[in-house]
């Protein structure tokens, strides 16, 4: 554990909580891509199946459970509780365009050709592109609410902080995980355009 890893995790947690609270408090999921949220729920589910097979630390287990719980709570709010406010017409990105190629890649490029490891690899690849339906939705409607941009900022910041974590771990522990590093770079790059808008325009974005 180092400072980049910890702040990365907290940034990730902040993003998840911000989105959940925003939907809950406003009783609306307008402007939020339900498809991105389904993909994130799928990411956490496939990555954290190791909860059943290996124990890393109390911190690790607690965070995993919170991430999974929040992901499903968010999907529930969007598709069940506040379904009437869900903007399905603008959430038109096709999930299979991400899930199918990513599944194929996970089978081809992985650390170990085993069931759990392929699911872990799938989750890493899928996470790197899971935000695309949300970004697509914003580009389609041409705007994003302030709180939505805070959500995206913390979600993007988290993986960027992990990149520093991996540099740290490479120098001080000799540790590196090429699959996570490359996917993490792709993921961070996807947010660059958004970061630029967030910093220059600040808060609410209208294209």
């Amino acid at each position: 554990m180092n400072i980049f890893r910890l702040t990365g995790d907290l940034s990730h947690l902040a993003a998840i909580i911000i989105l959940l609270l925003k939907i809950w408090k406003t009783r609306s999921c307008a402007g939020i891509s339900g498809k991105s949220q389904i993909l994130f729920a799928l990411v956490f589910t496939t990555r954290y199946l190791d909860l059943l097979t290996s124990f890393i630390s109390l911190y690790n287990t607690t965070m995993k459970v919170i991430y999974i719980g929040c992901a499903y709570a968010t999907v529930y709010l969007i598709y069940m509780k506040f379904k009437a406010t869900y903007d399905g017409n603008h959430d038109s990105f096709r999930m299979e365009f991400l899930v199918v190629p990513v599944g194929g890649l996970a089978c081809l490029v992985n650390h170990d050709f085993s069931f759990l490891e392929i699911l872990w690899t799938f989750s890493i690849y899928l996470e790197s592109v899971a935000i695309l339906p949300q970004l697509f939705m914003i580009s389609k409607t041409g705007e994003a609410e302030t709180i939505t941009t805070h959500y995206l900022f913390f979600l993007g910041l988290y993986r960027a902080l992990y990149l520093f974590n991996w540099i740290w771990r490479f120098y001080f522990e000799g540790f590196f995980d090429m699959i996570a590093i490359v996917a993490g770079m792709v993921q961070t790059i996807l947010y660059c355009d958004f970061f630029y808008l967030y910093v220059t325009k600040g808060q609410g974005i209208s294209l």
């Binding site: 690790n60 965070m63 872990w120 540790f175 995980d177």
Partner: peptide
């Protein structure tokens, strides 16, 4: 060492 399974990150 490089990567060792299981994965210890989130």
């Amino acid at each position: 060492h490089a990567l060792q399974l299981p994965h210890d990150e989130l």
